[in-house]
Simulated scan of single mutants.
Amino acid sequence: MAGWHAAAGARTVLLPQPQSFCAGVERAIEIVEEALARFPHPVYVRKQIVHNLHVVRDLADRGAVFVDELDEVPAGATVVFSAHGVAPSVHQEAAGRRLRVIDATCPLVTKVHSEVRRFARRDHQIVLIGHAGHEEAEGTLGEAPERTRLVQTAADVAALPDIDGPVAYVTQTTLAVDEVTAVVAALRERFPQITGPGSDDVCYATTNRQRAVLAVAGESDLVYVVGSRNSSNSVRLVELVERAGKSARLIEDVTGVRLAELAGATTVGLTAGASASPTLVARIVRSLRRLGPVEVVERRVATETITFNLPRELAS
């Protein structure tokens, strides 16, 4: 009870907008839902369809079977590829196993894959700015593995070997914009003739959520970011707030809210990564209301109107 009394009281909750699901995530979830409605069960999904535990559990409850690799999928079955994209070798393996493939790769990730193929055809050596081990980075590297190198920091750029011939770079879509800017500057210093993508690879949703959380961070005693630990865009939001000198915590859902840290926090920022449901945010607001009156204030920096069509296998 002592913890409850310390945390109790009126507070303001700042909701930066946009937050929560982006168009690519909504499309990926809808693809699995449609596959479950149209095709014989079980419907398999390679990797997590999006990086959020609640989304995966909900779809699993409805009949989706999540696997790590295609050798876990029976020949001839239906399999959905996640929003993060896959290497061409995965498509080849699926064809060899006669799998019905429905590709839920976000169109903005597909754009990056296309850029890699285009640079490879032009005989460029390619630098991918991304996080080692992340599914999106692995899929992108697989487009031209013999000529693509991965870097994450300016120090990684300094460690690259000398490269003869033309050099190009592409970027994972879920990185922090300020960090990408620093790495690109290091690349341009190291390789003055380097070529970049025609338009930014960091996606609009990632950029908007970063701008939005910074719009409330300065006024907040604490910022909660709702998202899973393997969600790159959610983790970047936490890091961005911390680089701005404010306290931030990544929480999976309302169970991550701690009474002790709310003591003295009269203004709380509350956002969600692009793969986290807005329902999770609403539950946290309801929980905070049990501690006292809550004024919810939205701060909108952009309005998102983008939608993506379903793949041709589900278009009719």
Rank of each mutant, 00 (worst) to 15 (best):
A265W: 12
A265N: 11
T267F: 14
V268C: 13
G269S: 08
G269F: 00
L270K: 08
L270I: 07
T271K: 02
A272T: 06
A272W: 03
A272C: 06
A274W: 05
S275V: 04
S275H: 04
A276Q: 01
A276C: 01
S277P: 15
S277H: 09
P278A: 04
T279V: 11
T279F: 05
T279S: 08
T279P: 02
L280I: 04
V281E: 00
A282K: 10
R283D: 08
R283S: 11
I284V: 03
I284Q: 00
V285L: 05
V285P: 00
V285C: 03
R286V: 00
R286T: 05
R286K: 11
R286M: 02
S287N: 03
S287Y: 05
L288F: 15
R289Q: 15
R290K: 04
P293K: 12
V294Q: 13
V294W: 02
V294E: 04
V294A: 07
V294C: 11
E295H: 13
V296T: 09
V296I: 08
E298S: 09
E298H: 11
R299L: 00
R299G: 05
R300P: 05
V301A: 14
A302I: 01
T303P: 00
T303N: 03
T305W: 06
I306F: 01
I306L: 10
I306P: 01
N309Q: 14
N309Y: 11
L310Y: 07
L310A: 07
P311V: 14
P311I: 11
P311G: 10
R312W: 04
R312C: 04
L314E: 14
L314F: 12
L314A: 12
